[in-house]
Design a protein around this nucleic acid. Sequence first.
DNA 1: TGTTGACTTAGAGTGTGCTCTAAGTAATAT
DNA 2: ATATTACTTAGAGCACACTCTAAGTCAACA
Lengths: 129, 129
Amino acid sequence: MKVSEASQLTGVSTDTIRYYEKEGLIPIIDRNDSGNREIDERIIRRITFAKHMRSAGMSIKALKQYVDLVDDTEDNTAKQKAILREQVADMEERRDDIQFAINHLNYKLEHYDDHMKEAENELRELENK
Amino acid sequence: MKVSEASQLTGVSTDTIRYYEKEGLIPIIDRNDSGNREIDERIIRRITFAKHMRSAGMSIKALKQYVDLVDDTEDNTAKQKAILREQVADMEERRDDIQFAINHLNYKLEHYDDHMKEAENELRELENK
DNA sequence: TGTTGACTTAGAGTGTGCTCTAAGTAATAT
DNA sequence: ATATTACTTAGAGCACACTCTAAGTCAACA
């Protein structure tokens, strides 16, 4: 699979795929005889995973640390584990903030709907006079 | 309350408080005779709210739109409502991504703990020989 | 055979959201 | 009186995460 197809499939731009490879968020991708990237299912999964993590608010740097840990490319010290725990704690806080925000906006939307309905009813009454 | 105290209380830097005021994310703050900001409980709540929304991944622009809508400083059109609904949908997606990421990291941490325990047990056995 | 189009690279440019700087004012302490 | 400290402003600078540009290579089709 070419990089453009991988982009289509994952919703991550070709530039960003190349950038993630350079930054080590995904593995180095094999090249064909012409020097072009040949992307397989494993890389697709890694791109999608990176996309999820970035969308969840994980920084490039934090994601790199995580990837290095899981890929066993660096030593797995207790310090690395502590970094991971911190990241989980950050995410839990962010998740709670998001839920708060969703609840808040939904409440306001319902409220707003009420206003709309009132306005619509007023209009209807005027029309039926 | 001075801006530095508000910063301490909310965990938002003085620079950022001034920036949020300039951008209209919080109301214009009253000044005292010296021209310094006099921050009250209402402003504190607004700063905290902005902090929550930002932490939830809402952009400055989107937050401004929302604030304008709720503050009734602009006309409340159905278009504005649609914008809000989009923001809620975005946040729900982001929340799900975060939960996915948390689950993933927690699983890896448990796995990692197993490795640690094995290593510890091996050490203990060696010591008890 | 030439030109179209997708790929490659290194590196420059961009938008967002702060964060810092410089220059100035005002209140307080010595 | 003067020094310190916290505030003010406009605007410059910065980190992050892309995103675009330029210059070049390669395969395929007219």
